[in-house]
Design a protein around this nucleic acid. Structure first.
Length: 317
DNA sequence: TATTTATGTGCAC
DNA sequence: TGCACCTAAATAC
């Protein structure tokens, strides 16, 4: 259940561990058999995230496009590189890492890293290598030392470079994918302030700004103290700019930490506690009926375009 | 054991 | 607007 930060983490992980190596590509579940056959044996040349879309390019110029949808996730096994400074929240500790180059040893231990939902890391069920697919695995990418299994994606398809570019062109700016943050922010300002649609809906529209999902939407609007029902054209440009800059900060934090921690009021101890306790991570998301952390008024839950919207009716105006 | 829910999107009407 | 799709964990019974 990913928003943009998760997909960026996946892209970085695949870039670290799979790019530059010929891959054995298969579809244990069978639903991606044709696509897997097309990619099998090819070398991945790049892995990029734009919003919630993942693009893996191959030496054939084919592009594997993956969207995790609501419940997609990647499981990685084997000699998986640590991402960033190692501050990621982890579940039970994995088995000792296999050293580079030793994976083909007689008894390689494996660890399993899940990217996509609440991230977790733990020892694999057994030491078999390659690990048996767990659940419905749409595609398996196997470098020999790292296995990446994709489960439950809403999209997994092979595109030409042109087709992939067309998908990208339909997306709004992603703070991690723009050359100039301020310039990109003006695009978002335009796309929000010209519309009559509620700003809460516009922030979820991937053509307006890419990568924001239901949690970041709720939290960005609370942090801006803005009522999600405000029509886009009634939101001052400077407020949209502020939300865009804030999105850039939250996204970078999420990529670094692997956790959506959207409260800026916590000290180090509070942040540590929140990393381990999901109920402490947000201002309003998932807190329907609970008191607003600022004013104590019960947080309102309502539907906006079929998604749950959380807001404080007093703080957000 | 069955039902509900979820950090999402796309298409038919 | 409503539904279909996809999977697994949490919750209800």
């Amino acid at each position: 259940m990913p928003e943009g930060h998760t997909v960026h983490r996946v892209a970085r992980q695949l870039a670290l561990d799979l790019v530059g190596r010929p891959l054995a590509v298969s579809s244990p579940q069978g639903r991606f058999a044709a696509g897997a056959a097309r990619l099998d044996g090819r070398t991945m040349t790049g892995a990029t995230a734009v919003g919630k879309q993942l693009f893996c390019t191959f030496d054939t110029a084919d592009v594997l496009r993956v969207h995790l949808g609501l419940y997609g996730a990647w499981d990685l096994y084997g000699d998986v590189s640590p991402l960033g400074e190692g501050e990621r929240v982890r579940g039970s500790l994995g088995a000792p890492r296999v050293r580079p180059g030793s994976v083909m040893d007689a008894q390689p231990s494996t660890r399993r890293l899940r990217l996509g939902e609440d991230e977790s890391e733990h020892a694999a069920a057994d030491d078999a290598w390659p690990p048996p697919p767990l659940g419905q695995v749409r595609v398996r990418l196997d470098s020999g030392s790292v296995v990446a299994d994709l489960r439950g994606p809403s999209a997994c398809e092979v595109l030409t470079a042109d087709e992939a570019a067309a998908v990208r062109a339909r997306l709004g700016p992603d703070p991690q994918d723009v050359a100039d943050l301020d310039e990109a922010g003006e695009v978002v300002v335009e796309r929000v302030t010209r519309r009559q649609v509620a700003v809460g809906q516009l922030l979820m529209d991937q053509a307006v700004v890419a990568g924001i999902g239901n949690i970041y939407r709720a939290e960005l609007l609370f942090r801006a103290r803005l009522d999600p029902w405000t029509p886009g054209r009634r939101v001052p440009a400077e407020v949209v700019r502020g939300i865009w800059r804030d999105w850039a900060v939250l996204l970078a934090d999420g990529i670094r930490d692997g956790v959506m921690l959207t409260r800026e009021d916590l000290d180090d101890a509070g942040r540590l506690a929140a990393r381990h306790d999901p109920t402490l991570r947000h201002w309003v998301y998932g807190r329907g009926g609970l008191p607003c952390r600022v004013c104590g008024t019960p947080v309102v839950v309502e539907e906006m375009a079929t998604r749950k919207l959380y807001r404080c009716p007093v703080c957000q105006v």
